[in-house]
Simulated scan of single mutants.
Amino acid sequence: MIRTLIVDDDRLVRIALADILDDDPGITVVAQAGDGREALERAAAQSVDVVLMDVRMPRLDGIAATQRLRALPRPPQVVLLTTFDLDQYVYDGLAAGASGFLLKDAEPSDIVRAVHVVAEGQAMLHPSAARRLVDRYHRTAGGRVQAARARIERITPRERDVLELLADGASNAEIAAVLGMRESTVKAHVSRILAALEVGNRVQAALCVRDAGLHGDNSREF
């Protein structure tokens, strides 16, 4: 059972999200919060696997709350909820450790799917918004290109093969099939890649590839 925390300053939005998630037999909503500070209190009080997090909230916004949640000893995965006009905040949220984001008008099935995807250690981004984020980031990346390339040089050629497929949005099973590996071997490679790149999840690893200018696609899932 995936234990989920819903964080939004709009009570009606929280209720709607809870109704959507409660319809899935594999998900349970264990708590709700109206802002980032309350979310931290709820996460500290009980075990949480996935947080659906609004970006703009009073007291403590979703980006700052994401960074603090991901610093916990047993950090939950975070999916940000936003609108197109908040692209810059969403990128900051991903950099803070969020596993992805959805638009608030996403289909209920996409919201449920996102919870399952991130709970499995992968991530999910809305394709149109992901494209805008990548374009915006590359216009302001500056010296990060060289830093990203230096980090990628730390990994082996085989790990780079895995990283390239990861940046395409391939799952561990898909990477294993393409490269002729066991899925457990792929998981081990991914763990070493994340450590070498000094990133916390697959989203940040894929963004590192883009920072380095080594990949031009815009993926939906990582």
Rank of each mutant, 00 (worst) to 15 (best):
1 M>S: 14
2 I>G: 03
3 R>Q: 02
6 I>S: 00
8 D>Y: 03
9 D>M: 01
10 D>P: 00
10 D>W: 08
12 L>F: 12
14 R>I: 00
16 A>S: 12
17 L>Y: 01
19 D>P: 00
19 D>C: 04
23 D>S: 12
25 P>W: 11
26 G>E: 09
28 T>W: 05
31 A>N: 14
41 E>Q: 13
42 R>C: 06
42 R>P: 13
43 A>C: 07
43 A>N: 05
46 Q>K: 14
48 V>P: 11
50 V>C: 08
51 V>G: 07
55 V>I: 15
56 R>W: 10
65 A>V: 04
65 A>G: 07
66 T>F: 15
67 Q>N: 13
78 V>G: 10
78 V>A: 12
80 L>S: 05
80 L>F: 00
82 T>P: 03
89 Y>P: 09
89 Y>D: 04
93 G>N: 06
93 G>V: 14
98 A>E: 04
104 K>L: 02
104 K>I: 02
112 V>R: 15
112 V>S: 11
114 A>E: 09
116 H>L: 14
118 V>K: 05
125 L>A: 15
126 H>I: 04
130 A>T: 13
131 R>M: 14
135 D>I: 09
140 T>I: 07
141 A>D: 11
142 G>V: 09
143 G>A: 12
144 R>C: 08
147 A>T: 00
147 A>F: 04
148 A>S: 10
149 R>D: 11
156 T>Y: 01
173 A>P: 00
174 E>R: 13
191 S>A: 08
191 S>H: 11
194 L>K: 04
195 A>I: 08
196 A>N: 12
199 V>S: 04
200 G>R: 12
201 N>I: 02
203 V>M: 15
204 Q>P: 13
204 Q>S: 13
207 L>Q: 11
208 C>R: 14
208 C>H: 12
214 L>S: 00
215 H>S: 09
220 R>Y: 03
221 E>Y: 03
221 E>H: 13
